[in-house]
């Protein structure tokens, strides 16, 4: 860590005064979490890296607006979710991607085992299944995708999701129900299997 011995609040304060080294220290402590969410949201290396970079660029240019009402990591999380949401909205406006095209997409989300062992057939099946689940998730409305990732992958509570997305707990519950329903329907539609 570039700035040992400082608390998060001190690093934020120094960053707000324009200290890049302090901000880099904050980056180092939060990168793993930011990467994890970026990967889970986007499911591929390129988009996840872009999302991480944009998140820190936006955080740096807006650090003066950070009020300290939540932890720095939570603030970052919110920036990341909003950036992801905006990007997805723009993408969906710019191009109409058919569901068939999505199935044939080669941007595989799940890392493949490098050296298949004796369980190769089962692992392959698992990788294919994971890819199918990922592509089904990617085909959903970004609102549903976000809430499913936050609940099932990040394992956040309704309250935490509500705070991050700025919606009441009741809305989180309703979105999750609709999202799960949309997920099962999309999977059946994409892969022709009744789940």
């Amino acid at each position: 860590m570039a700035e040992p011995g400082f608390t998060e609040e001190e690093l934020v304060l120094k960053s707000q005064k324009g200290d890049r080294a302090a901000f880099e220290a904050l980056m180092e402590t939060t990168l793993a979490r930011t990467w994890s969410l970026a990967w889970r949201l986007s499911g591929n290396l390129t988009d996840a890296e872009d999302l991480v970079q944009e998140t820190y660029m936006k955080a740096w240019s807006n650090i003066g607006k950070f009020r300290g009402q939540s932890g720095f990591a939570t603030w970052l999380y919110r920036i990341q979710l909003n950036l992801y949401h905006d990007t997805q909205r723009i993408k969906s406006r710019r191009r109409e991607v058919s569901l068939d095209a999505k199935i044939g997409d080669d941007d595989a989300p799940a890392p493949q085992p490098a050296d298949p062992g004796p369980d190769a057939p089962r692992q392959l099946e698992t990788a294919e299944e994971l890819s199918a689940v990922r592509k089904t998730l990617d085909s959903l409305d970004p609102v549903y995708r976000r809430v499913l990732v936050l609940r099932h992958l990040e394992e956040l509570s309704y309250e935490a999701i509500g705070r991050l997305l700025d919606v009441p707990v009741g809305t989180v519950a309703a979105w999750l129900f609709r999202a799960r329903d949309a997920f099962r329907k999309a999977y059946t539609q994409l892969y022709g299997e009744k789940v």
Partner: peptide, 12 residues
Amino acid sequence: SAGALGRLRAVP
């Protein structure tokens, strides 16, 4: 659905 989504937790 819940089980399938949970399998995407692994992060490189």
